[in-house]
Structure formats: structure tokens, C-alpha cells
Design a protein around this nucleic acid. Structure first.
Lengths: 364, 364
DNA sequence: CTGTTAGCGCGTTCAT
DNA sequence: ATGAACGCGCTAACAG
């Protein structure tokens, strides 16, 4: 027998198993096999004899070997990472999508890495660029409004990506999401049927956010279809914060004391508005109907319950993962998939108060 | 002159600038300089003559060159990535910490990459391991309760890390955070001073969460110090969800109808409890005092305002970044830093109702 | 200051 | 099924 391969199986230099930085090559030597075999048990264990596999596996354990991700990415031209850039980490709605995404990717041996843009398209671009520099295998984005250069970058680098939360039909911009305009249209219709004609729209910043602008479009279209006038000064834009919902509502009701229906672009602002209304003695839904969007936990817990639109965010996460997996593996998949969003009519809306009766007077 | 170095500066093979995968070497050839110089303008631009720098920079632009992150990490033994594993992305409290962390790291050319553990120590371990496989330069963790193997892994790989949100004094476990027990002790003291003696504790799962267990300890110690009895069945543990706050409270008040003070381990559960109390006709704070922890936006917006503890989460994020930066650069820094958490006494707590008056009777 | 050269740790042809 | 050799794209000495 070859003495090198008998006893000791190459355990020549194990000075300190713990404090060594083990590389695939060293592990191979330690296990008495070739580097290629070690690589195989890492990547295609089924193509390896049980005997060798066992040796390598036990070497892994003994040496606490951890393969170098960067080196693997370099050699294989695949990073096994998917990047996601979300607008914010401060609201639950993206959290549940991301969680579902993560779990689904994990099942396929892909790791999710996350960054946030703080609702800033420039920052979103920078974060995406960093991900691309890491050669992520795919990218998940929120919405379809992005820096023009980002779309160019994506195309140039051929990075698979998918827009989420808002549905589009553009075949060059894969998307998985809901129809924001349609859902809001529906919500607004209910209000119209209840006799409302004095509307207000309270929203977080619209620029660069197609979900929000879609919702605004839904309101506009619905009111136009019903011959209800809706001037731009009935739209008030505030930062995405609970307290700003209060402020926005106060400003709006001061300008339009006869407003009886308030449509909010998101639950958070609706909560703020409801809290302020309550404080001002404006009854919801008796004198004012309020709607939101997102169906956050609070929506069904506060009283009255908030009428809103439920976004299937877990579904979106799962679908996004599966879309990217398909693209990465070269399978063909529909570029755009529409998901249904349930419109939830709850206690926060009611029939429009009779003319005059609704008018809120200050200082009374 | 050497003809190779004259006109054309090597622009021999630019077949399709757009569809090429440009490497540092190709860029160097294109710019007519050495690979080393290109690398230098990437990493130490100050050590490069303006002339060369200009050539390289314009080549970057023309070719849309994006350096390969994995290769850089491999060659330099630094990934310029910091990993963070958070328990959940669904609550704002970690969001603001992570955001601050991200911004601070960004200023130092480090990229944050995020993963979530869903409050599961096993999953936390796996996520951390993946990060370490990517050779992150540092790791941010939440709390100090981790899988024992994680601590081993960290030590073995010499990965700089820091526990956040909970303060500890263990020099082997760097931490930046608040003293959960102390803050809750203080909060409870207020309740005791207001005459309360019938307490309840509503909490999210305690196991593996030292922030929550610290808070429980704070309550226990305070009540013991004041000679107030507090049996374990006055502690109720529910999932971390708004609706579970309702359920938990209902169960608790049924078992202990004479309870007048409810301490919650987190604002979310306190909100649930307050909503349920309101629904049940139990006045807050007249018949029941409630406290939370976190100071979420809602805490100061609902009525009555929730008494709670404000966590300086942005501060924690900034400090965590700076701690890791220091460790990476080999500077010495205090291993444990304590941050103050403001105890906010607001409308949700009041003097204990007289004996008997407080007793809530079902079906009345 | 600049260019040359040798790896970084791994995957992947090829032979065998 | 296994091993040898090459190269992924970049940085880090070193030499000039």
C-alpha cells in the first residue's frame, strides 16, 4: 500500500484544529482525498462514493470547516444570494412579505440579503448596485417606480429581478402584486353608494411610489365616474407617520369642514386621522367615514374597525421567490402576475350624514 | 516609443461595451494602465497620480465597470459587509435601530446585510453561520440569549460581534443596550407608589429572550422589595401579536378579577390589553393601570397615553456600528455600554381603586 | 508612483 | 467515480 494513504490518512499538520483557518484544500489533505472530491460533497454529494463522502463529512465536523462564500461565488459564478431592497423596515407590511420570501428561498438553498432605501429612489439605486456588485442571483424590488438608471443597470447586468406589491402589465418589468387603483376604486365606490360626495384624500409622499399614486388614481377615477368633483386641494400629502396622520386630517377638515369621507393611502395615516377625529369630537363613522389600505393588525382591532384593503403580502413573497428561482434556472414563467386584494368593509364607514348635519364647526 | 503604449491606448477589442463582462484586468488594458493601478484607484485613490486616475475613472464610466465583490473579499480578506440578525422585521423597534446602524456603516464604506430569525435561536444560529461563511467583518445580534454554539462559532472564527438592546457586564459578550430589569423595576415602583398591590404580567414568549426575562425580573424584584405577593400564575405568556394581547388580558382578568395593575413586556401587548379592557368596560386608568415597553408611535397617540419605557434604538444602532468599526480596526473600546432608557409615565396609570371597588364582575 | 507577479479559496473542465 | 490543473477577479507584496 501506498504509505501516504494508510494510517494517519494525512493528518500530518493538525497544529490546532480550532485556531486554523481551514480551506477546502487543507480539508482534502486532512481527509486524504482530492480537493475536487471535497468540492463534490459540497455541491453534488450524490456523485460521490459513500466512503469518500463519510471521510470528508467527518473532516468537516472535526475541523469546523466553513466554505468561503466569496470564493465559491467567484469560482462558480453564482452567489446563491438574492437581494431585496425595501422602502422601510419600520412597517409590518413589508416584514411579512420579506419573511415569506426568505423562507421560500431558504428551502431552495438561497440566502436573502436585505437593505432599505428609506423611500428614496437614489438610495434604492445605490443599494441595488451594491447587491449587483456582490453578484446576487436575483433582486426583489418594491413597486415599479425606480431610478431609470436602475432599470438600465438591471438590463445591462442581466440580473433577474421582480417588482412586487404593484401589478403591471409591462413585459419588461416583471411584477407580482395587486391592482392598487382597482382596489381603491372599489373602496371609494362603497363610499359613493353610501351617499358621500365630499371627499378628502390623505396620503404619504406620492413621488416615486406607484402603489400610492395608483390608489390616488383609483379615487380620482371613481369620483369622476360618479360625477363627483374632487379638486387637488382635497389631497393632502404628509410624511409616513402616525402623528402626521393627525396633522394631515386636521388641516383637511379645517379646509373642508363639510368633508364626510376620508380616503387614506395607508392604514397608518387612517389611524392618525381617526385618533384626531375622536379627539376633535368628530364621530366615526357617524359624521366621518374613514378608509385605509394595508390591513395592518390594528385595523381590525380598533373601534370602529377600519375599512381597508388586505394585501396578500405573504403570497407576494412566495411568488417573488418562485419567480426568481424560475428565471435563474432558465424556466419560463409569466412576467406579470396579478393577485387579488380583498376589500374589507368594516365599521369605520357609514352612510353620509344629511347635508348640513355633517358640517363640523370649530370652537363649538 | 514603445508602440504598444502610444496611440489607441489599448482600445483594441471593445466589441460591445454594453454586453461585456468587464473585469479589472480588461479595464486596465482598456485604460492603458496596469491592473494594480486600477485596483489602487478603487481602494487608495490618493496614492494615484491624477492623470492615471482620470484615465481609469473614465474607463469605469464608459464601460460601466462593477468590481466583483466576492473576488475583492477573497483577495483582501475583508468583505466590507456587516451582518445583522434580528428576531423579526415586523415591528418598528428593530427597524429604527437597523436603519441607524445601516446609515452609520454606510458612512464608513461598510454594507449592512440583514436576516431575521423569527425569534428562533436555531434559525438565528443558521443565519449567523451563513453570514460568517460570507466572511462578514462583523455581526450585530439582538439580546444576549443565543444558541451556545453561536458563541463558540463566533469565538472560533474570531468574528467581531455585539449584542444589542440588552446591557450586560460580561466582558466576553460585548453589549450595547439598556437595563431592562432596572427600567421595569422603576415602572413598577410607580405603580406601587400609586397603591397597587394586585399585579399581572402579560408577556410575549420569554425563552431565549433576555430582554423580556429581564423585564419580568424587574417586576418580581420590585414587588418582592415592597412585600407584595406575586405568584407565577399572574404571569401569562402569549404570542407576540396584538390580538393575543387581548386574549392574554381576558384570561388574566378572569383569573384575577381584582387585578388593578397590568405590566406588559411590550407595547403591542399593552395595546391589545387596553383595547380589550375598553371593550369589556374596564376603565383605564380608573379601574386598571397598564404599562408597556418600547414606546412605539402608538403609545403616545392613543388615549389614554400608554406609560412605557423609551428605548434609544437609534443610539443603539449607531453605537453598535461604531463598536464594530473600532474592533475591526483594532482599536480598543469598552466592551459593554449602558444606555439610559427613559421611563415615561403617562395617562394609562393612576391610583389604585379602593378595595372592592375595582373588582370586575363578569355578566354585570 | 507604477507595473509585475503571485496567490486568495473554490469550482470545473479534463483525463484517468 | 476520482484527481490534476487551470482560472474565476481581485489585492498585496515586491521591484523598479
Amino acid at each position: 500500500m501506498d504509505p501516504k494513504k494508510t494510517r494517519g490518512r494525512g493528518r500530518s499538520i493538525p497544529p490546532d484544529k480550532a485556531n486554523e483557518s481551514w480551506t477546502l484544500e487543507k480539508v482534502a489533505k486532512y481527509a486524504g482525498v482530492s480537493p475536487a472530491s471535497v468540492s463534490r460533497v459540497l455541491n453534488r454529494p450524490e456523485h460521490v462514493t459513500p466512503g469518500i463522502k463519510a471521510k470528508v463529512l467527518s473532516a468537516f465536523k472535526e475541523l469546523n470547516y466553513i466554505p468561503h462564500g466569496g470564493a465559491r461565488a467567484l469560482a462558480s459564478r453564482r452567489s446563491n444570494m438574492i437581494g431585496a431592497v425595501v422602502p422601510t423596515l419600520s412597517f409590518a407590511i413589508f416584514g411579512s412579505m420579506v419573511q415569506a420570501l426568505q423562507v421560500r428561498l431558504y428551502d431552495s438553498q438561497l440566502q436573502l440579503t436585505l437593505a432599505s432605501s428609506e423611500y428614496d429612489l437614489e438610495r434604492e439605486f445605490v443599494q441595488a448596485e451594491i447587491f449587483i456588485a456582490r453578484r446576487v442571483d436575483g433582486l426583489v424590488l418594491i413597486g415599479g417606480d425606480h431610478h431609470p438608471e436602475l432599470y438600465e443597470l438591471l438590463a445591462r447586468t442581466k440580473t433577474p429581478f421582480v417588482n412586487t406589491f404593484s401589478y403591471s402589465t409591462n413585459p419588461d418589468r416583471p411584477s407580482i402584486g395587486i391592482d392598487n387603483a382597482r382596489s381603491t376604486y372599489e373602496l371609494t365606490s362603497h363610499l359613493v353608494e353610501l351617499g358621500h360626495s365630499q371627499f378628502g384624500f390623505l396620503t404619504s409622499p406620492i413621488k416615486g411610489n406607484d402603489r400610492v399614486s395608483g390608489r390616488l388614481r383609483g379615487v380620482r377615477t371613481c369620483l369622476a365616474d360618479n360625477g363627483i368633483s374632487f379638486d387637488d386641494d382635497r389631497i393632502i400629502e404628509v410624511p409616513y407617520e402616525l402623528s402626521e396622520g393627525r396633522n394631515g386630517f386636521r388641516a383637511l377638515i379645517q379646509s373642508f369642514p363639510d368633508m364626510t369621507a376620508l380616503v387614506c393611502s395607508t392604514d397608518v395615516l387612517a389611524f392618525g386621522a381617526m385618533l384626531e377625529a375622536q379627539e376633535m369630537g368628530i364621530g366615526v363613522p357617524d359624521r366621518l367615514s374613514v378608509t385605509g389600505f394595508d390591513d395592518l393588525d390594528f385595523a381590525s382591532q380598533i373601534r370602529p374597525k377600519l375599512s381597508t384593503v388586505h394585501i396578500p403580502s405573504r403570497q407576494i413573497g412566495v411568488r417573488a421567490a418562485e419567480f426568481l428561482l424560475a428565471r435563474i434556472e432558465g424556466r419560463t414563467v409569466p412576467m406579470n402576475t396579478h393577485l387579488d386584494a380583498d376589500v374589507l368593509i368594516r365599521g369605520s364607514i357609514g352612510t353620509a350624514p344629511k347635508k348640513g348635519a355633517a358640517r363640523f364647526t370649530f370652537g363649538t
